[in-house]
Computed example of a mutant assay.
Amino acid sequence: MLLAIDLGNTQTAIGLFNGSELVQSWRMPTDHTFTKDELHVRLLGYFQMYGISLAQVSALAFAGVVPQLLREWRGVAVQLGVPFVQVGSDTAAVTKVDAPHPAEVGADRIANAVAAAELYGAPSIVVDFGTATNLDVVDARGYYIGGAIAPGIGISMDALSSRAAKLASVPMEVPAHAIGRNTVEAVQVGIVMGTAAMAEGLVGRIRRELGETGRNAQVIATGGLAGVVANCTEVFDHVDQQLTLQGIRLIWERMQE
Rank of each mutant, 00 (worst) to 15 (best):
V23C: 00
V235H: 06
T33L: 15
F47E: 06
L167H: 03
R74M: 10
N112F: 09
A55R: 13
A77D: 04
Y50C: 09
E253P: 02
V219L: 12
F34Q: 09
T133S: 04
D237W: 07
I251W: 02
M198I: 15
L3A: 03
L70S: 14
Q188M: 14
L69I: 09
I179D: 00
I206R: 02
V85D: 05
N216D: 09
L60I: 13
V85Y: 05
Q241E: 12
G15L: 01
A165K: 06
R181A: 12
S89K: 11
A77N: 01
C232N: 12
S161V: 07
L3G: 00
P29F: 12
V76R: 01
G204K: 15
A77K: 06
L119E: 12
D240R: 01
H101V: 09
G223I: 09
T131M: 02
P151S: 04
W26F: 10
V219P: 03
G45D: 14
L135G: 00
T233R: 13
R109C: 03
L7G: 01
R205N: 10
R42L: 15
S161N: 03
V174F: 13
L54E: 05
E185T: 02
A150F: 10
H238M: 06
A176P: 07
Q218N: 10
G154Q: 14
I5E: 03
L167W: 00
G106E: 13
S20C: 07
V78N: 02
A230K: 11
